[in-house]
Design a protein around this nucleic acid. Structure first.
Lengths: 226, 226
DNA sequence: ATTGAAAGTGAGTAATCACTCGCTAATCAA
DNA sequence: TTGATTAGCGAGTGATTACTCACTTTCAAT
């Protein structure tokens, strides 16, 4: 049983080969930009290379000069987002939030975490859409996603949770259940924000929504004042 | 501003035209079965009609005898699931759970609700996968999904929430935030169950997971015993 | 037994697919 | 200026796409 070199390792290795945007041709950047647009709008399989070429203002041959297959474009689009979630230089954001955990209350930490993640999602809306979309069908992408979002964050979160239970700030529940609760709330926050823009849900600002969510996460919806 | 005849109305109308499985030909059922399998495995766009025909053991022409386009097959696959979530005869399940709300505690009601929804998801795994998948790109499907899952359930849920706040069983939080919390927990429950089958998450039975989730939903993860 | 409609067929169609290749244009170090 | 490498092009490739249509089979009602 030779465990594959852990997904994150593999991912990071792959990413090192990735060109930096600055050392791309104008046309190459256009190809990526067009791909992101089309993949997000109609999905990977429904977008043809001829469409991409057209949208990018480029000959179809040029696409295959830079990417050896259509799937290669998908990976080039998706990998950077994955990295943003996983790689140290952004995970650092999360790490920094966690770092001063002794000085901050759990509720402060989670509030910052939610704020931070919402911003990240908003800044990469289309990419994330593509990522989730294709994670359904491409094993590599799904595994990388799980490895980064979960395995990456989970360990840190678990340490924090256990520390805060120790201190008595959190109830002694199974860590796994607490982790799930935190993540569920976050997903709900982002999901509702994206999917619903009815008056009902936009009457509160982002920060108010976050505050409410954290309040409920910590205190529940039940009434204990009696 | 002529409001469209409400999505649910339109949906139910459409569904009435839908043939019952019993009045389908053997071959027609095979076509649906094959489509579900392929769509779930590789997605709508990546599945070709020739593949479907092959998988169903049917000539390609036969497919178009029953469905006037490929997209028609998708709708035929997806509509029944939508109905299961929305239409009275199953929404009844939810309604019954809510009905005796005076006699039951909120925690009992939510427990039953979660149990019920998890079973529904498990029983229709592939269909739901297809539904979510294609909701990304087909406006009609997404709107129908939102209309059924949200608009349908929301009103009932809101009444329940407000009633339980009145009684003092729940804190007087914005109804919308409470609704979101309930839904988020449920989504988290199903999502983790489906995506992760690590030891860590399977060490508790479904019912234990539900109980934990409801506990956290009601009481939060914070420690108030001090 | 006859008939008519529905179910089923599979070769055929134009369009589109991802991708190739022989070519020219631009870039740049020597 | 040269020579070599890279970027860019677009007509052309065979394979595959969703879909059609003229035809046969099935079968229930007369």
């Amino acid at each position: 049983m030779n465990k594959p070199p852990t997904f994150v390792e593999g991912l990071l290795e792959y990413v090192e080969e990735l060109k930096d945007e600055s050392e791309m041709t104008e046309k190459q950047r256009n190809i990526l930009r067009a791909s992101v647009k089309l993949f997000a709008e109609k999905g990977f399989h429904a977008s043809s290379t001829s469409e991409i070429a057209k949208e990018a203002g480029v000959a179809e041959g040029t696409i295959f000069r830079h990417y050896k297959s259509k799937k290669d474009i998908l990976l080039a689009v998706v990998a950077p987002v994955l990295v943003k979630f996983a790689a140290p230089f952004i995970l650092k954001d999360v790490r920094e939030i966690f770092k001063e955990q002794n000085k901050k209350t759990f509720s402060q930490i989670v509030t910052e975490l939610y704020r931070n993640r919402i911003d990240l999602v908003l800044a990469n809306e289309k990419h994330i859409r593509i990522l989730l979309q294709e994670a359904f069908f491409h094993d590599e992408i799904r595994e990388a996603l799980i490895a980064t979002v979960f395995t990456g964050v989970k360990e840190m979160a678990n340490k924090l949770i256990e520390a805060k239970v120790e201190v008595g700030e959190l109830r002694p529940l199974p860590t796994q259940a607490v982790f799930r609760a935190i993540l569920s709330s976050m997903i709900g926050l982002v999901l509702f924000r994206q999917v619903l823009d009815t008056d009902e849900f936009t009457q509160f600002s982002d920060d108010e929504q976050i505050a409410l969510t954290v309040d409920i996460l910590l205190n529940g919806i039940g009434n204990h004042s009696i």
